[in-house]
């Protein structure tokens, strides 16, 4: 067997990255690259699964049968995304159950946006439109991520997210064109979700400790601020189109740069929510922990039954 020294391995690895050749599970990769991916993909998986809760909150109260079915299908998609992201984490040698326990113990993070409550039906619109909208902005570049399994998972996820974003916008559009009460409900949802949605892109570039390394590894393709700007530029005209007002008095179009300028984000709130002081952090984690604990006897039964079956089949075969 041919021996490689660590510098040689590193050189070959970076060469692949530079030539846009995907890194696959069995390829050699630096430990830091592996750890960064485990952290990022498991956070992403947790976000999908925790993200089921704020929208799941309105399934039983959806206003008509069609909306109920669409919302069910959407939340179900998020569970599916969680599944293939956990599978992607497993290709890096991490254990799915361990990463889930890390979520429950507070060691692993998930997107802070899901720590905000969904208070009205219009929040189903705002979440789809803004939260899934921001998620797409983050995830489309991840389809070109240097790690193969993650990039491929993202291709499928993005297709579904784009349907989610459209259904959310459609809910908002319908409300905005409805009665004054409905329009007020839509505006209120936009007011509450606008800033948390902008926070979804993470801290300003100057504060972001992981960005540069992730960009060198082509895990990340754009900085947080670039993506945030893209979100603002795309969303503002959409809000205008349906007659809703972005809750930012400093928002203005800059003719020279061709971008919207927007007000200062409340970073204190952001860090407080990340640290656990959001309105729903405890409720979300409690719900996930309860699902796991309540499901323990079911998983044990499934394993025990599979074991008995194997034993019976082996006996039959012998």
């Amino acid at each position: 067997m041919k021996e490689f020294n660590i510098d040689e391995l590193n050189r070959k690895f970076q060469e692949k990255i530079d030539n846009d050749i995907k890194i696959e599970p069995k390829d050699w990769m630096p430990d830091d690259y592996r750890q960064t991916l485990i952290r990022q993909i498991s956070q992403h998986a947790h976000s999908e699964v925790v993200g089921m809760l704020p929208e799941g909150n309105w399934i039983t109260r959806a206003p008509n049968l069609r909306r109920k079915a669409v919302l069910l299908a959407k939340v179900q998609d998020e569970a599916g995304h969680g599944l293939y992201l956990y599978s992607a984490v497993e290709t890096l040698g991490a254990d799915r159950e361990q990463t889930i326990d890390d979520l429950h113990s507070g060691k692993a993070k998930y997107s802070s946006i899901f720590n905000y409550p969904t208070l009205t039906w219009a929040d189903m619109g705002a979440v789809g439109w803004l939260v899934d909208g921001a998620a797409i902005m983050n995830q489309v570049p991840l389809c070109r991520c240097s790690y193969g399994p993650y990039a491929r998972a993202m291709v499928r996820v993005c297709k579904e997210e784009s349907f989610h974003q459209r259904q959310g916008f459609e809910i908002m559009m319908k409300l905005a064109a409805g009665t004054p009460e409905q329009k007020a409900m839509a505006q209120d949802a936009l007011n509450r979700f606008w800033w948390p949605a902008l926070m979804m892109f993470g801290p300003n570039d100057a504060e972001s400790k992981h960005t540069q390394q992730s960009m060198d590894w082509k895990i990340k393709r754009h900085t947080n601020d670039e993506l945030r700007q893209q979100m603002v530029d795309i969303t503002v005209p959409q809000a205008e189109m349906i007659g809703l007002t972005i809750p930012d008095p400093d928002l203005k179009w800059n003719e020279e740069t061709g971008h919207y300028e927007y007000g200062e984000i409340d970073w204190d709130e952001f860090w407080q929510v990340v640290k656990g002081n959001g309105p729903c952090n405890k409720d979300r984690i409690d719900a996930r922990r309860k699902a796991k604990e309540d499901g323990l006897w079911v998983r044990q039964a499934a394993n025990a039954h599979a074991e008995k079956r194997r034993a019976r089949n082996a006996k039959k075969a012998s």
């Binding site: 089921m52 809760l53 299908a73 179900q76 719900a287």
Partner: peptide, 24 residues
């Protein structure tokens, strides 16, 4: 549909939601 987000494993969360979707 009350199970959505609370299933004993993700696979069953998806399955129960599927049943719900069919029935709705």
């Amino acid at each position: 549909s009350e199970w959505c987000g609370h299933g004993p494993v993700l696979e069953e969360d998806i399955a129960l939601t599927n049943l719900s979707l069919d029935l709705i």
